[in-house]
Amino acid sequence: MPALRETVTERLLLTAVGAGDVEELHALHADPAVWEHLPSGRHTERAQTEAMVRRAVQGWEHHGLDIWALRPRAGEGPRPLLGVGGCTLRFGAAWNVAAWNLYYRLARGQWGRGYAQELIAAARDAATALEPGIPVVAYLLEHNEGSRRAAERAGLDLVWRGPDAGNPDPAAVRLVYADRPLGRSTLALFTET
């Protein structure tokens, strides 16, 4: 499992998110430009980013996989943060239902360069290697065309479309993509929160 903490793709160096990433991750998650599809998700307090990092560290410790910081693979000196993403394990209330939640968020200037595809491929490979019986799921807002295209290009299939529970916009529509058909209780992990 330690090999997954640092993974390389064709152009990216993916490293397990840790406390040293908080500053750059907060800048990314506080940027309104990366939240144009869900403004209410933007981090307005550093404590939100710190909590996200703590959850990721716990995910790496307990499940062997969580989110990575994305940086350029090549280059000398400090490598700028391009984004963050990976797979986080989600459990149902009874702990007998689980799914890998595929997450990807790129800095606005990095959209359209194919980095999401590299990240998604690495995350799916890692999740499948660790727990092949657990589905990989991406849930996103219908009007987020870029995220939808990324999920579809990655070979995920649309398995659900419906209201976005908890979204401040009552008209928001959520899409759920997965690498296999989902049972009702697994689908509920993404549609009832």
Rank of each mutant, 00 (worst) to 15 (best):
M1G: 13
A3F: 11
E6V: 15
V17M: 10
V17E: 01
A19H: 11
A19C: 09
D21L: 06
E23D: 15
E23G: 12
L25Y: 05
H26K: 08
A27S: 13
L28M: 09
L28E: 01
H29D: 12
A30N: 13
V34F: 04
L38F: 09
L38I: 11
P39C: 11
G41P: 01
G41L: 08
Q48I: 04
T49F: 05
E50P: 06
E50K: 05
E50N: 07
M52N: 06
A56C: 13
A56S: 14
V57W: 02
G59S: 09
G59A: 07
W60M: 07
W60R: 05
H62C: 11
H62P: 01
H63R: 12
G64D: 05
G64F: 02
D66I: 00
I67H: 08
I67P: 00
A69R: 03
A74W: 03
G75W: 06
G75V: 10
E76T: 14
E76A: 14
E76Q: 14
P80L: 05
G83D: 02
G86H: 02
T88M: 11
R90Q: 08
G92A: 09
A93P: 07
W95N: 11
A99R: 00
W100D: 01
N101P: 04
Y103Q: 12
A107G: 15
R108L: 07
G109T: 15
W111L: 13
G112P: 03
G114T: 08
Y115P: 07
Y115D: 09
Q117I: 00
L119W: 00
I120F: 11
A126L: 07
A127K: 01
P132R: 00
G133P: 04
I134F: 03
P135W: 00
V137K: 02
A138S: 15
H143L: 12
N144T: 06
E145F: 11
E145P: 05
G146V: 03
S147Q: 06
R149C: 09
L156M: 15
W160A: 14
G162W: 10
P163D: 13
A165K: 08
A165H: 12
A171E: 14
V173C: 12
L175K: 01
A178K: 04
A178S: 15
A178H: 05
L182Q: 01
S185G: 01
S185Q: 14
S185R: 15
L189T: 00
T193L: 12
